[in-house]
């Protein structure tokens, strides 16, 4: 049975030989393959070698293309901030305010040929070729309601959502073409699903009235333009208590829960069907031993009960580059043979 088949079975409510799982191992994969993360996040071939090195230990059902959302903003003129041994961050967003950003987005086609985006698409294509259908290829993408924060900064985006909703709508609408073009390009490159961290529809970030009246309609319209199924990632915020808000989102096939979420609460809120992925925070991995990791996995797995639409991944940021390689084997050994 292949990884995509396991994911599809879980979505169809069928228990298989094991639950689907995958971890974000960009920097870790690079280290395992003998490269610096900075090298792997600039060279598609090295990135794929890193993923192959990680997969040799983890044997996952799901593999991820480069998780560098900052590249989406850099394509419009943002400035990248290299991080030692980790994924790039954004030093400076490309625009000052929502209206300037909306005008710029409308004035030119989505820059799919920008260096960072070209790298992500080429890495997707090579990764899809390398796994040849044995594992599901998932491409991270900024959500339509969070992409504006990459373009103008979190504070300016919050200002627009709070105090200038017309400008917020204008920018978000201008970003739909970017989302659709990038999602389409990922699909053409061989990705089978998108993973989208979503923050600005979470009532812990934005008050619920604005979520319902402003942010959720933006997300609904944007997600509706994806040609691929989407996994809604908690984005670092509590999700299970709010999941009832997100049941009607188009194209959303699953949710990645956070560390503080309650699995039973999440399933009760969303109902049967969507894949719910339990998690351990990526940055926490480096501190586990194989024994403590097994114990944590067992506690998470126990909460699944008989729910077939269950999967496992990491929350928050990716696994640190220094994560001991035997921990990947521990995850593999834990899930193999657990129907």
């Amino acid at each position: 049975m292949t990884g995509p088949e396991r994911v599809m079975a879980a979505l169809s409510g069928v228990l298989t030989d094991r639950p689907p799982y995958g971890l974000v191992c960009g920097s870790l994969g690079a280290r395992l393959a003998g490269y610096e993360p900075e090298e792997a996040f600039g060279d598609p071939e090295l990135y794929v070698k890193g993923q192959e090195a990680a997969a040799a230990l983890l044997d996952p059902d799901i593999v991820f293309t480069p998780f560098v959302l900052a590249f989406e903003a850099v394509a419009y003129g943002g400035e990248l901030a290299p991080q030692r041994g980790a994924v790039y961050n954004l030093r400076r967003p490309p625009f000052k305010n929502a209206r300037d950003a909306a005008r710029a987005l409308r004035a030119a086609p989505t820059p799919l040929d920008a260096a960072g985006i070209r790298f992500m698409l080429e890495a997707t294509k090579r990764l899809a070729d390398a796994v040849a259908g044995s594992r599901m290829v998932v491409a991270p993408i900024a959500s339509p309601v969070d992409f504006p924060a990459l373009l103008i900064g979190i504070e300016s985006w919050l200002d627009a959502l709070l105090f200038d909703p017309d400008a917020a709508r204008e920018l978000a609408s201008a970003g739909f073409d970017h989302f659709a073009a990038l999602a389409g390009a990922y699909a053409a490159a061989g990705a089978q699903a998108l993973a989208s961290p979503v923050m600005f529809v979470n009532p812990s970030i934005l008050d619920e009235r604005r979520v319902r009246e402003l942010a959720l309609p933006i997300l609904t319209e944007g997600f509706g333009r994806s040609p691929l199924p989407i996994v809604f990632h908690h984005g670092g915020n509590p999700l299970s208590r709010y999941l009832g808000l997100f049941g009607g989102l188009p194209q959303v096939a699953g949710f990645v829960l956070g560390e503080r979420d309650v699995y039973a609460e999440a399933r009760a809120a969303i109902g049967a069907g969507p894949l719910l992925m339990a998690t351990i925070p990526g940055p926490a991995f480096a501190a586990f031993t194989p024994d403590t990791l097994r114990a944590r996995l067992a506690a998470l797995f126990e909460k699944r009960g008989a729910d077939p639409a269950w999967g496992f991944t990491n929350a928050g940021a990716e696994l640190p580059a220094e994560t001991p390689s035997e921990l990947l084997a521990s995850v593999r050994d834990f899930f193999h043979g657990r129907p």
């Binding site: 919050l158 959502l161 709070l162 009532p203 812990s204 970030i205 934005l206 008050d207 619920e208 604005r210 509590p238």
Partner: peptide
């Protein structure tokens, strides 16, 4: 107590 959002604290 997580009864309000970050945005409300921001205001």
């Amino acid at each position: 107590h997580e009864k309000i959002s970050l945005a409300q604290g921001y205001v």
